[in-house]
């Protein structure tokens, strides 16, 4: 979804948890990293799709996703007309650096 798209889904932001960087994604354990890297490529996915990716049951996938949401790597997204939340990676904006203003 870009700034030029008119409809924005409701995103459940965790403002108390900082957004995560790619470097932090690298440090995740294998299974969690599998979910996050796959979600970046997919843009977003539902619980059943994540469970299929992991070849695990939905309860196991839900536990992993809940943990990733709590850590700030993933956010729940509620699309209009869909009862179940979908999941999207929550990446931090690229941070700026100290650069002289008169450059």
């Amino acid at each position: 979804m870009s700034v030029f798209d008119s409809s924005q889904p409701e995103q459940h932001r965790r403002d108390d948890v900082p957004e995560r960087t790619m470097a932090e994604v690298l440090a995740l354990p294998h299974e969690a990293r599998t979910i996050v890297t796959w979600l970046v490529r997919q843009r977003e996915a539902g619980l059943s799709e994540v469970a299929a990716l992991l070849e695990q049951d939905e309860a196991t996938a839900q536990t992993l996703l809940t943990d990733l949401v709590a850590q700030g790597f993933v956010q729940e997204v509620l699309n209009e007309g869909e009862g179940q939340p979908r999941y999207r990676v929550r990446l931090a904006a690229r941070r700026g650096r100290q650069v002289p203003l008169d450059l």
């Binding site: 870009s2 700034v3 970046v40 843009r43 990446l91 904006a93 941070r95 700026g96 450059l103």
Partner: peptide, 20 residues
């Protein structure tokens, strides 16, 4: 160039842009 260095940018926007 210095604005990018100083302020950064929204990473998700880049991914969305590529898709578009």
């Amino acid at each position: 160039i210095t604005r990018v260095l100083r302020e950064g940018y929204e990473v998700n926007l880049l991914i969305d842009g590529f898709r578009k």
